[in-house]
Design a binder for these strands. Structure first.
Length: 232
DNA sequence: AGCACA
């Protein structure tokens, strides 16, 4: 089994992410998407040359990470199928919580210990030449199946915007879910736009209270719903 | 492809 000889970990390692998405939006969207599996302790994404297109999501429970890796494999996210594995190392946030966190310079020393075997008198100048990566015009990738496109960062609103619903979803199904929370007013769906819905509450606070427990709720196994505040 | 915590 080539896929992963990596032992279970609280953190999952995600690759093949859309590199055009800004770091903060990416982290927000990953948080929304993965919170269905359990409590998320941290999301890490860097845009450095070596680390772009990748992210780590750390769960409070290893079992949550396991479910995430299996169920979200190849999930189309910003138009690209996610590749998921367990992370290879423990996340710093967890190590800090356990009090076993080793600051970075000490970590370096440990690595050097291993490298001492190959002690080289001098490093040949084979290091990275000037990067030949021009700003390649990211060949326009259109209309993904799941495109949060900044919605997560909307300010609170009494209307919620729901995405990634299976096309067979009815407003009655959604009502059963959303009316459990106080202040519920109505569901609005648009026949010409399957897969999305608007849910109205009396006020912003009630809307955000409903958003949290229903975030990532699955009407079918393939459709964790993605909830954000509607645009004003 | 690429396994970090700015």
């Amino acid at each position: 089994m080539l896929t992963a000889d990596i032992p279970p970990n609280h953190s999952i390692y995600i690759q093949n992410l859309n590199e055009r998405i800004k770091k903060e939006e990416l982290k927000r969207s990953l948080y929304c998407l993965f919170s269905q599996f359990g409590r998320i302790l941290d999301v890490v994404a860097l845009k450095t040359p070596k680390l772009r297109g990748q992210a780590w999501v750390t769960f409070s429970e290893v079992t949550a990470a396991g479910h995430a890796v299996r169920q979200m494999q190849n999930f189309p996210f910003y138009d690209k199928p996610m590749r998921l594995q367990y992370a290879k190392a423990k996340s710093d946030c967890l190590a800090k919580a356990e009090g076993t966190f080793v600051p970075k310079d000490k970590k370096r020393k440990q690595e050097e210990k291993v490298e001492r075997k190959r002690e080289e008198s001098q490093r040949p100048n084979t290091a990275n030449g000037p990067s030949a990566n021009g700003p390649s015009a990211n060949n326009g990738v259109p209309a993904p199946s799941f495109q949060p496109s900044g919605q997560e960062t909307m300010p609170p609103n009494n209307i919620l915007f729901i995405q990634n619903l299976p096309h067979e979803t009815t407003s009655m199904m959604l009502q059963l879910l959303f009316e459990q929370y106080p202040g519920f007013k109505e569901i609005r769906m648009i026949d010409a736009k399957p897969g999305i819905a608007f849910v109205e509450y009396e006020d912003d606070v009630q809307a955000s209270i409903a958003m949290q427990p229903l975030q990532g709720f699955k009407i079918t196994p393939q459709n964790p719903m993605v909830i954000s505040f509607a645009k004003k």
